[in-house]
Design a protein around this nucleic acid. Structure first.
Lengths: 333, 333
DNA sequence: CTGAAAGCGCTAACAT
DNA sequence: ATGTTAGCGCTTTCAG
């Protein structure tokens, strides 16, 4: 429609057409309140007509802030991270920021590359769930981000890094709450399927469970899997082959719980009758398939909001120190 | 490490340090084969040491190609789109392209905004699953994209737009294959839970089913839901309350099938015994919860590859006309 | 294989 | 409220 073929409308063309200077046209899009309403409208109309859209690349290059936040997750297919990302994106939108979302596929190399990419895009901050469960994971890019004064907010997987903010789950409390709830149910024989041994998240949850249950139940056994479904399924299955059915299985995250479900069903155990499952994190699709598993659930909305808040705060005022927020889950019986 | 605080290393700084001109340093990252190996290595080392990363914004601004492809989906939480996106991203990587991934949240307004954003990022092409099921949906941005010569590849949801490439599923064939398979199982009373009436995808699948089954089964009824779980669940549930249990339910996509599962289980029907389910698209988590539903399954890897191929082809040679690829599913019994 | 100059589209800093 | 100038970091083009 009246646009030269293959030629992109620029601020210059809009400005010329609307009889204003480039900078006024610029302000019409970045600081509309500093432009006279009539002028503003004329510019807006011209832009519309020319099909003009702001060139983010040029803006990022010149402006102090790109109004963009990077989000990096190890596995977007995991509903915990996928859901969180969607909520953070919505939250960012409200604050006038775009998000650039990347999946690191649980790969360290990919994570490295993505962070470089995000630096290259001049993001104002990075919200990051690292691929590692190890508290002492310290990838080289963290130093670079510190040097560049790009605020980092870690989510869920905690690292021992002073210059990063963090939103973490109170994992000890998760375990404690879960344990207390099980006591109320008079659970006697309890089997915990936990995550990898080097994972803080896993360890703390187990510690909480043990603190609440030790000595108060007939037996408390801990299996170690990792945070993926398959291993948890195999471990549970193996265990079931050699032991009597317990009162309760406890899954230490959503993927593990799925593994437990699969194993129990394969062993033809009536879940909820012969054996029960308590999950930390909600169990995907349970309701659809006719199950209800009590769990400790986390308010993703809250986590998303906190993460964004921690990020933006430091973007707006670089003097502000990194913050740390601990989010507590609650039992959904 | 030796980097000035808060100051980003630039090509100029790398070049100075390595005793070469900016352009040689530039080539070291964009066309390494055109730089003498020794020089190359010196530049690379200097860059490493300075923590230099290419500034994508500046590159996108100046270069012909940003080596970036935009991906837009209506719902990343749907495993069909989520999975596809992951595969397309991997495929793009192999070809040396980055992807910018956005979720339109099934909202037209968001879709509009995202497309503008992508134009602003100077993406080389856009791979798009639109929010609408309507064949005649024709958002204004499509004209803009045509004018700008930005190739568009539509995925799954077909639009009647000449200048867009497309990767579509052979929906009629889906229905036919499903129908034939049901005949082999001697299905007699069949209930199809379909998508919205204005959806081509839904209509074609139903047409295929009807063509295969009409007159060859005792009864064939079609319910209309939409492509989300909840409505399919309610419709199925309502139907079950007033009718005898059929031999087979057919779910016209993965979300609908989940709705059917939920309704059947709530009505205490033994899935696979009292009533069976055939799904178009795989049913999420079925295996975990102890079910196996025969389905028509689509090779996401193939779809992802085709989409990328169609996109890149036109990026590389703008003279190439939009292409259209139809992908056929196959029955997984 | 390497370089010098020009400029992509935008906005910060300073005018007016 | 609006304009002028300069320059962000890179790659294109033309030149050796």
């Amino acid at each position: 429609m009246g646009v030269a073929r293959g030629r992109k409308a620029t601020l210059a063309s809009v400005a010329a057409q609307a009889n204003v200077s480039k900078i006024t046209a610029s302000r019409a899009f970045s600081q509309p309140d500093k432009v006279h309403p009539e002028t503003l409208q004329r510019i807006r109309e011209t832009a519309e007509q020319l099909g003009y859209v702001v060139n983010s690349a040029a803006r990022s290059l010149r402006a102090k802030s790109s109004k963009t936040i990077g989000i990096v997750n190890p596995d977007m297919a995991n509903p915990f991270f996928g859901g969180l990302t969607r909520l953070m994106t919505l939250e960012a939108q409200k604050l006038g920021y775009d998000t650039l979302v990347f999946d690191s596929y649980e790969s360290q190399e990919t994570e490295d590359r993505i962070i470089d990419k995000l630096i290259g895009y001049n993001v104002d901050a990075i919200i990051l769930s690292v691929i590692s469960n190890d508290h002492h994971y310290h990838p080289a890019y963290l130093n670079r981000l510190e040097t560049l004064n790009i605020p980092v907010v870690l989510v869920d997987r905690e690292l021992d890094v002073r210059h990063c903010s963090g939103v973490y789950i109170d994992n000890l409390d998760c375990g404690l709450q879960a344990g207390r709830w099980l006591l109320e149910q008079n659970a006697q024989r309890v089997v915990v399927v936990s995550g990898p041994e080097n994972s803080n998240v896993a360890r703390e949850r187990v510690t909480g469970l043990q603190a609440a249950l030790q000595g108060k139940v007939a037996s408390l056994e801990v299996l170690h899997a990792d945070f993926f479904m398959d291993v948890a399924w195999q471990e549970t299955s193996r265990w079931l082959a050699h032991n009597d059915v317990p009162d309760y299985f406890i899954g230490c995250n959503n993927q593990i719980s799925l593994g437990i479900v699969k194993a129990c069903i394969e062993h033809q155990l009536a879940l909820g009758k012969q054996v029960s499952l308590f999950s930390i994190d909600e169990v995907s699709h349970a309701g659809i398939y006719g199950f209800h598993f009590p769990c400790v659930s986390h308010d993703l909305q809250e986590i998303a909001w906190q993460a964004l808040n921690l990020a933006i705060r430091r973007v707006v005022d670089p003097e502000i120190k990194p913050g740390k927020v601990i989010v507590r889950g609650k039992v959904v019986p």
